[in-house]
Design a protein around this nucleic acid. Structure first.
Lengths: 361, 361
DNA sequence: TATGTAAATGTGTGCGAATACATTTAATTG
DNA sequence: CAATTAAATGTATTCGCACACATTTACATA
C-alpha cells in the first residue's frame, strides 16, 4: 500500500554508504568493493528500486546523436512514411536529448548507399537506424559498427547476420499467408490467382519471396491446391510498354483469374491498368497506404491493403534506440508490427494524421 | 542550425527580469504588470520556448490522483482488458506522479455504480476515467465534475452531453459498416444474415444500435437490400434454455442463413452452439479478442473479430489525462481507435503480450 | 514627507540522478 | 613503520523547472 518511491538516497541510507557508491553500482562503473556491491544490489532488489527516468535524463544532460540511413523518398514514395515516423519520434524524444541526423541515399544506386554509410560511420553516432536494402553492401558496415559498439536498428528489411539491436517490421511470410486467406475468403470458388512482384529485383529481395511463400503455403496447408491455380509474374515499371504487354499477356491467357496479389506497394499500377481495360471482376490485394493505393481502394478497385505501417517502423526504430541509449532498457530483438487489414471501410483509422501517437502496451 | 535549447533563464535574461516573473507569466499566476507580461510572451514566442517536461514534472513533484470508475471484470470478462490497460498506464506513468485509484462497480447493478461514483466524487480526484454504461445515472455526476472542474475521460461508450476531456473508443457505426463489408465480401451470393445482440439491454446501449445501423446501411448504400435479407435477434445468457431456443428458432427457420454478426463480445456463444449442432457453413463475425473468441477464431468457427482494443482504451484514457494534467498538453476530444480486422492469420500480432508498448505517432 | 499596503518582481531551495572532484581507507613498498 | 599509491567511498554541483518566500516598487493616505 504505502509504496513510496525509492530513491538512490534511500538505498544509500539503508546500505550505510553514500549515493556515489550506489551510483557506481547502478552503472557498473567499478571501484566498489565486492562486499558492498553485493549488499547494495541486494537492497536494490529488495526495495524494488526503479530509477526516475526524468531525473536521470535531466541530470545526465547528454545529447545522443542518432544516424538514420534511409532511402530517398523522391525515388520511391514508399520511403516517405518511415522518414515521417523518424522525424515524429525525434520531435517527441528531443526532450530526452535525442538528435537525429538523416543520411539519405538513392535506393536505386548502390554507390550512393555506400557513400552515405561511410560518411555516417565517420561521424560516429551513438546509434543507427537503417533499412538495409542492399544486402551485400551493408554487411561490412555492420562489421564496423559492431566493432565500434554502435547499436543499430533495422527496419523494413531483416538481416540476421550481425545481430542488430532490434528489427522492426513485419513478418513477411505471415503477411503472404494472410493475403492468401483474404483471397480465399472472398473467392471460395476454384479460380486462378496471380502473384505480382513489381519493381524489385526479386533475387535480391528476400522478403518478397517470403511473402510469396507464405501466400502459396496458405493454399497448400489448407488443401486448396487443386482448387486454386497460382501464377506469378515479375514486372518492372522502368519499361512501361513491356510492363503492359506482360501484364496483358497473363490476364488474357487466364480467363478464370479472379485475384491478384501484389507483393510490393505498387498495387495501384495493376489497378490502374485494369481500370483502363474496364476489367472489374479481378480483386486486388496489395500493401501499404500510398495515396495512389488509397485512391483505388476507395474506388473499390483494390479490395484490401495490408498496412506495413512504415511510419510506425521509423518511429519505433528511434524509440527503441532511445530506450536503449537513454533509459538503458532492454529492447526486443524483433518487433513485429501487426498485419493490419485495411479496406475502404476502415481506412480512415489507419491513415496518418499528424497527431497520431504511437502507443505500446 | 544552432538551436540551443531555450530555458526559462534565457527568457528571463533576454527580458531583463527574473525567472520567477517568467514563471508567473508561463503559468498565468498573475501578479505581473501588463507591460512586462506582454514583453515576456513576445520573447517566448520569438525564442520558440518549449518547456522541458521532465524538469517540470521533476520540479513540481506533484502527485496526481486519477480515479478509474470501471465495471467489474468478474461480471463480464470484457472489462478485464481496460483494467489491464489502466494498470499498465499507471505503471508507465508513475514516474510522472500519476496514481490511479480504481472504483469497481457491478455492470449489472445501477446502485453499485451510483455508490462508487459517489464515493469517487467525494474523494475529489484530479482526473477521472470511466465507461459510462449507465447513461441516465451518469449525467448528474458529469454535472458535478464539471462544476468541480475535474476533467473526465470516457472510454468504450460515448456520451456527448457535458463534453468530456476526451472520448476514447471506436466509431460504432463505422464498425458495423465494416462488418457488413466483411460479410458481403465473403458471401457475394444472396443470402440471409443475422444480427445478434447478446447480453445487453438494447434500449440502453446506444452503441449496439449504432453498430446495427452501420451494418444495415452498408447493404443499403451498396444497393444490396434485395440480395441480403437481414434478420435480428436479442439474446440473453441469463436464461440459457431460452437463449438456445431462440437461437435455434431463427436458425431453423432461415435455411439460407450464411452469416451472423454478433454486436457484442459474445460471439463465442454462437460459435459454441453452432459447433454443438455441427453447423459449419454459417460464418460468424464478432468483436474483441476474448480467450473464448480466440479459441473459435483459431478453429475457424469465427471468421473475423473486430478488435476494439479495450486494453488500449484504458491505457489511452490514463495517458490522455496525464497529458492534460502533467504536461498541460491539448488533448484530442475524440480519439477513435482503429477498427482492427483480426483473423486467424494475423491474430498473433494483436494478442496482447505484456511487453507491448503503446506508441502514438 | 512619512507610512501603510498592495502589486510587482527577485531569490533560494528542492525534485532525483549524474558526474566531476575530494577525501578516506587499505595495501604495498623501501 | 612512514611513505607512496591504488582502491574505495563521500561530497558538491548541475540539469530545468516549480514554488514558497523575500524583497522591492508604486501609489494612496494621513
Amino acid at each position: 500500500m504505502k509504496n513510496k518511491i525509492v530513491r538512490i538516497k534511500d538505498i544509500a541510507e539503508k546500505a550505510k554508504v553514500s549515493t556515489g557508491t550506489v551510483d557506481r553500482v547502478l552503472h557498473k562503473r567499478g571501484r566498489v568493493s565486492k562486499k558492498v556491491e553485493e549488499k547494495i544490489l541486494k537492497i536494490i532488489e529488495e526495495m524494488d528500486y526503479e530509477p526516475n527516468l526524468m531525473a536521470r535524463a535531466l541530470g545526465s544532460n547528454k545529447i545522443y546523436q542518432i544516424a538514420a540511413l534511409i532511402p530517398d523518398h523522391k525515388s520511391d514514395s514508399y520511403w516517405y512514411a518511415p522518414k515521417a515516423g523518424i522525424e515524429k519520434a525525434e520531435k517527441d524524444l528531443k526532450q530526452y536529448g535525442i538528435v537525429v541526423q538523416q543520411y539519405v541515399f538513392d535506393p536505386y544506386d548502390v554507390e550512393s548507399f555506400i557513400k552515405n554509410a561511410s560518411q555516417l560511420t565517420k561521424d560516429n553516432p551513438d546509434g543507427i537506424i537503417l533499412s538495409p536494402i542492399f544486402y551485400r553492401e551493408t554487411l561490412p558496415f555492420f562489421e564496423k559498427w559492431k566493432v565500434a559498439e554502435i547499436p543499430f536498428v533495422l527496419f523494413n528489411t531483416q538481416i540476421t547476420e550481425y545481430e542488430p539491436l532490434s528489427y522492426i517490421g513485419q513478418d513477411s511470410y505471415q503477411s503472404g499467408f494472410l493475403a492468401g486467406k483474404l483471397i480465399h475468403y472472398g473467392q471460395p470458388e476454384p479460380c486462378s490467382v496471380l502473384i505480382a512482384h513489381i519493381d524489385e529485383e526479386i533475387s535480391n529481395a528476400a522478403h518478397l519471396l517470403k511473402k510469396e511463400q507464405g501466400f502459396r503455403n496458405y493454399f497448400s496447408q489448407n488443401n486448396l491446391e487443386h482448387q486454386y491455380k497460382i501464377l506469378r509474374i515479375e514486372l518492372n515499371r522502368a519499361n512501361a510498354a513491356l510492363f503492359i504487354t506482360q501484364l496483358d499477356a497473363v490476364i488474357d491467357s487466364t480467363p478464370d483469374m479472379a485475384s491478384i496479389f501484389v507483393t510490393t506497394s505498387k498495387a495501384y499500377e495493376i489497378a490502374r491498368h485494369l481500370e483502363q481495360r474496364h476489367i472489374k471482376h479481378i480483386k486486388i490485394i496489395g500493401y501499404d497506404l500510398l495515396p495512389q493505393n488509397l485512391y483505388f481502394l476507395n474506388k473499390g478497385a483494390i479490395s484490401f491493403l495490408i498496412n506495413q505501417n512504415p511510419k510506425g517502423q521509423g518511429y519505433w526504430g528511434i524509440y527503441q534506440l532511445t530506450d536503449h541509449l537513454v533509459f538503458k532498457k532492454e529492447v526486443p530483438i524483433i518487433k513485429y508490427l501487426p498485419l493490419d487489414i485495411v479496406t475502404k471501410e476502415n481506412v480512415n483509422y489507419y491513415k496518418d494524421d499528424e497527431d497520431t501517437v504511437y502507443l505500446d502496451i
